[in-house]
């Protein structure tokens, strides 16, 4: 085979692969059967639309429950498709589809796979937050939904909590960053951060968003295990001091 033909075949295979891979992105409504591994998937969608009509923006908050409700509720198959539903194309359903067996990293043929817990089962009772595990871990502890041990052997050990907020002024127009020691010392030890990641002195560390994204500074944890960087306002939570906003005195 000539080199040209070989290249052609290679190209073709690449394109096939690219197209195939693209087809496995299931977050849009037109790929219904992907995102709802449910025999009566149709009814699920319709029920969702109905609930949306009644309580406006409050839909999609707990798709797991919706799925459960519909198991014995086949009546809602009656077509009530609302042409003006809020999200027509975007499918916001991060918790509905995940299963250990088809998550892309677990081996489905592994005999142990059936024993492992699906995240959606564990998360069904936990408060929702945007991004990451789609769980608000701080709130989950506050509400007493989970009780993570801070000592391996003593379930009643209480962590040494320090309540000290550090405000980092941010260049540009984003609100300032508030770093709360309280939420961090509830789950972490001082030595996890000091002095390895941060020198314990206000303003002594050179932080930037680029560093965070590359896995340094806050990005050691945020964007990997703790809530992800896409949740901007959780960190950028304090409005800039009034003096910084330049005022132009227009007189008409």
């Amino acid at each position: 085979m000539s080199a040209n033909k070989l290249r052609l075949v290679f190209n073709f295979l690449l394109i096939c692969f690219a197209l195939y891979s693209c087809s496995s992105v299931p977050e849009y409504a037109d790929k219904e059967e992907n995102s709802m591994p449910n025999k009566i998937g149709k009814s699920v969608e319709i029920k969702q639309q109905v609930s949306e009509v009644t309580d406006g923006h409050k839909k999609n908050t707990d798709s797991v429950n919706i799925e459960k409700e519909n198991q014995d509720d086949a009546i809602s198959i009656i077509n009530t498709k609302n042409p003006n539903q809020f999200n027509r194309i975007l499918k916001i359903n991060a918790r509905s589809k995940k299963s250990i067996k088809d998550d892309g990293i677990h081996d489905a043929n592994n005999p142990g796979a059936v024993l492992l817990q699906n995240p959606q089962e564990a998360f069904s009772d936990l408060p929702i937050a945007k991004g990451g595990n789609s769980v608000d871990w701080v709130k989950a502890v506050e509400l007493g939904k989970i009780k993570p041990r801070s000592d391996l052997y003593n379930p009643d050990a209480v962590p040494l909590v320090m309540d000290l907020n550090i405000i980092r002024e941010v260049k540009g127009s984003m609100p300032d960053v508030v770093f709360p020691h309280k939420q961090h010392t509830e789950v972490l030890d001082c030595t996890n951060c000091h002095p390895g990641i941060f020198v314990p002195q206000k303003g002594a560390n050179n932080m930037s968003m680029a560093k965070n994204l590359m896995g340094e500074m806050c990005g050691v944890c945020h964007g990997k295990v703790a809530f992800p960087l896409s949740r901007c306002t959780s960190c950028h939570s304090q409005k800039k001091a009034q003096k910084e906003i330049k005022q132009t005195n227009w007189k008409w």
């Binding site: 492992l116 817990q117 995240p119 564990a122 998360f123 595990n133 769980v135 871990w137 989970i146 993570p148 041990r149 801070s150 000592d151 391996l152 962590p159 509830e186 789950v187 972490l188 030890d189 030595t191 996890n192 944890c221 295990v225």
Partner: peptide
Amino acid sequence: PHWFHRIRFTCKVCHSDL
């Protein structure tokens, strides 16, 4: 799975104590 373990332990147990 981090999510599974952090339901049961705080980060400190593994990343500091262990």
